[in-house]
Amino acid sequence: MIDFKKHSGIHSIKTEQVLNIPLGKAWDFFSSPGNLEEITPLNMGFQITSELNKKVYAGQVITYKIGILPGIKSSWVTEITQLKNQEYFIDEQRFGPYKMWHHEHWFKALPNGKTLMKDEISYKVPFGIIGSLAQQIFIRKKLKSIFEYRYAALERMFNGG
């Protein structure tokens, strides 16, 4: 499920997915930044450029290169601003393609060893009316395709799909 909304010039995306793995295994996977490449479309040219610790921690700064348009790469710097072990972590853009990016990753143990994973993203596009037009024409579609790809990748990896 992917839900898009807009409020006060800020766009939000909410996704959720049940994974057929226990909470500890889900947390281990998602709290290891190096695994992000496995669930990101190849055509984005996504590359982590900072040294990585095994697990995320509050205050950690992670740098990336991403393809924002064909042939155009952008640097992206995020910080893990908050973390509660096996419950949630939040990354926020410090520098990058958005005017604002706030991404909450939530995890909850379910019966029978499954995990509910939720993402809540709030973002604002730059460049005023030009950015708003870009949001309508391709940014929303691009983000939708990224989260659809991620959903399918996680289904294959953890749900036998």
Rank of each mutant, 00 (worst) to 15 (best):
I146K: 00
K118G: 08
F46T: 03
T78F: 03
N43C: 04
G67R: 15
L69T: 05
L110K: 04
F4C: 06
V77H: 09
W101G: 09
F30H: 13
T40W: 05
H11R: 06
G96M: 01
G161F: 00
M157E: 05
F107V: 12
K99D: 14
L36C: 06
M44W: 14
I129K: 08
R150I: 02
K114S: 11
K142G: 04
N20D: 15
I21C: 02
K65D: 05
I10L: 06
K65Y: 02
G71C: 13
H103L: 10
K118R: 14
I13S: 01
K108F: 09
D91C: 05
K55N: 13
G9M: 07
E148D: 13
G96D: 01
V77C: 01
Y151I: 01
L36K: 02
V56Q: 12
Y88P: 04
E120R: 05
S31C: 07
G131S: 10
N20Q: 15
F138K: 00
I137T: 13
S32F: 08
G67S: 12
K73G: 08
E148K: 02
I146A: 02
G34L: 08
P22T: 07
F89K: 12
K25E: 11
I137V: 15
I90N: 11
I146S: 03
I13K: 04
A152V: 00
F89L: 08
N53E: 13
P33F: 06
V18Y: 10
N43M: 08
K6S: 14
P41F: 08
M117Y: 15
L42Q: 13
E38R: 07
I121Y: 13
G161V: 03
Q47N: 11
Y88Q: 02
L19W: 14
W101Q: 04
I80S: 12
I146G: 01
Q17G: 08
S145W: 00
E148Q: 09
